[in-house]
Design a protein around this nucleic acid. Structure first.
Lengths: 208, 208
DNA sequence: GAAATGTGTTAACGCTCATTAACCGAGCAA
DNA sequence: TTGCTCGGTTAATGAGCGTTAACACATTTC
């Protein structure tokens, strides 16, 4: 019925894709329970129940959004690790690339980044497990690289630090709407410096 | 009817206080809309409608929680700025104290920290404005100190950095439940290093 | 001791809202 | 032309849930 993933981002978006996009925006703005199906339908020019021609239900939209972003994050991370490693870059170069990739996600898919940890609890058990698994694998990608850079730090410490850096990078939704910062590039540069600055502090401290 | 704030934290907690505490926990776990009044009542040993003897409604509980945490954050921040300044500490000492204070909040009131940005949208307009105002004042406290430490950085840049550091410090709810890190002190020490490390990167970079 | 007050209870109300039913027109294949 | 599929529509259904009503009972107050 639907090919779900097989489409190039250019070309006019499918109705199905527009629904997902608008649903993501609305869910991020007012929460999953805070937005009704009629509203989502209206946002794409059809009426509430019309959505059921494209999705099994409201839950299915959220599932697809969260599983999708988790998969893209992990796939992007793996690509970057492979690419930077292939170019003969050391752990530092790999980390740089991971940070840049995550910043791209955070800036381009604000709504999804927000949903990603806000609405995880609304998923069916099986979907939540899948998302958690993907998240875990993504975290491991970072943990390995950071451990290579800071061999003296304990594993638990590094894992906590990675989570904290995600919190830092995912703070973009809180940066006042209009554009408190000059532009995208400046914001990206700032986040990169902050993240690397935080992780740099891992060497030379007392560990727990 | 209720004295709302006038109680010392020691001594047996009032029923009213227990309700707020349990509501905070449940809201953080499953979202404001995800938990019913019957459930909150059950958590404190009374039945759903019994809550209305203590609060005007479910919304009122959330309001009191969010306004309360915002007020305590701001009050705590102001005290620390005054104290550290009074002791003749420079901006660095003041920042250290602010960081420590925020970490205490993040570790001791995890549920509230989570709610603080998750459920802001569910508040009545007036309450949301009040919380936003308190948040803004708290941010300003930090911005002033950080600007004193990094005079070359632009104001917008510093403000964004402060928000990002909040994201980092508030990441504690994401550190796997059981206790991924050895203990509270180790976690606090790690967060402190990460936060100061991030902010240290503000000097000497290109600004936006 | 009577009245007021504070704090519970259970039952009923009413609204919101996701989902389903029933129906319909446009393309398009045989 | 006939008939199937696709993607819409509006109306009905049914559950969940916040809130209110009506009542009960202890404790305090006068």
């Amino acid at each position: 019925m639907n090919d779900v993933v097989t489409r190039t981002p250019t070309a006019a978006p499918t109705r199905r894709e527009r629904i997902l996009q608008e649903a993501a925006r609305l869910f991020a703005e007012r929460g999953f329970h805070g937005v009704g199906v009629d509203e989502i339908g209206a946002a794409v020019g059809i009426s509430g129940p019309g959505l059921y021609r494209h999705f099994a239900g409201k839950d299915a939209m959220l599932s697809e959004l969260l599983v999708g972003i988790s998969e893209r994050l992990l796939a992007g991370g793996r690509e970057r690790v492979a690419a930077a490693t292939g170019e003969g870059g050391g752990p530092a170069a790999v980390l740089d690339s991971l940070v840049d990739g995550h910043i791209d996600f955070a800036l381009d898919d604000r709504a999804l980044i927000t949903l990603h940890d806000r609405e995880l609890g609304q998923l069916r058990d099986s979907d939540r497990k899948q998302v958690r698994s993907l998240q875990r694998q993504y975290v491991e990608l970072w943990v390995e690289v950071v451990r290579a850079l800071h061999p003296a730090a304990g594993e638990a410490e590094v894992r906590a630090a990675v989570h904290a850096v995600f919190g830092l990078l995912n703070s973009t939704p809180h940066l006042g709407r209009p554009g408190a910062l000059p532009g995208r590039d400046a914001t990206a540069a700032l986040l990169r410096r902050l993240a690397l600055g935080a992780l740099a502090s891992l060497s030379g401290g007392a560990e727990g």
